[in-house]
Computed example of a mutant assay.
Amino acid sequence: MFQLEKHDSAIANVNQRIERHGEERELAADIKFTTSAGNNFLDSIEKGLKEALFRKPGKGEQQDLPIGDTPLSAVKFPSLEPLKLAHEFTGYELQIDGLLEGVDPIVLVDVKLKRFVIEPKEGGSVGLSFTASANVTPDELAELSEALIREDVLLTLTPPKAAAQQTDLAA
């Protein structure tokens, strides 16, 4: 399952909106993140995605050092535009830490991850952008605005517990 642990990322946008739950109106935010990672993380999104987008470098090509435990470091189809994925993950916990000490982390629960865009890069890395949506308080929205100004953050995404996933499957 997709997850990150104190991963260097950037906040590209914060959008506040209202969600309606029956007659109730709740404040919500969509936070767009951009980051990069080794192509091994593609397996956590969809098995076989890494092999579909990357290959071993051929003879005479630049022999890149493999990232992680995969020798797949050459982009199979360099002319492809970044790929939009329809994947959505729910029930995540999101933590945004600042790069400086003394900044309290922002923690949001029951976060939905969506609007994934991946861009394979030569050398075995992937550019990634996605949106995290969650209900927020006015104070959390203010903290997110401050994080947007700082831009660079350490992002932790924790998937829902296995028991919660099994409950969702049974429903």
Rank of each mutant, 00 (worst) to 15 (best):
G60Q: 07
S73C: 13
A28T: 08
L83R: 02
F130L: 01
G60L: 04
K32H: 11
G98K: 12
I45N: 00
A171K: 15
S79R: 14
K50T: 02
N15L: 15
R25T: 15
A170K: 15
E19N: 15
N15K: 14
K32L: 00
T167Y: 00
L169S: 02
P57C: 09
N15C: 14
D110G: 07
S125F: 04
V109N: 10
A86R: 14
R150G: 13
D139T: 15
R55L: 11
T90Y: 10
G22K: 07
D69S: 10
Q166C: 05
N13S: 14
A142Y: 08
L4P: 03
T34Y: 06
L42F: 03
G48P: 03
A163C: 07
V75N: 09
H21D: 14
L155H: 02
K76I: 00
K50E: 02
D104W: 01
E81G: 14
L80Q: 09
E61F: 09
A86E: 08
S129H: 06
L42K: 01
F33K: 11
D8W: 09
A171T: 13
N13Y: 14
A29D: 09
N135A: 04
T90H: 01
I18C: 12
L4N: 03
L148A: 10
E5W: 08
D110R: 09
R115E: 08
V126P: 02
D43E: 12
A52F: 01
Q166D: 11
E81M: 11
F41C: 00
V14Q: 04
E122Y: 01
H7G: 08
E122Q: 13
S129M: 05
S79E: 10
D97A: 12
A12V: 12
K56H: 06
N13M: 12
P160S: 05
T34L: 06
L155S: 01
K84F: 05
A170Y: 07
V14G: 07
E143Y: 09
S129P: 05
K161S: 11
V117N: 10
K6D: 13
F77A: 05
P78T: 08
I118L: 01
L4T: 00
I118R: 03
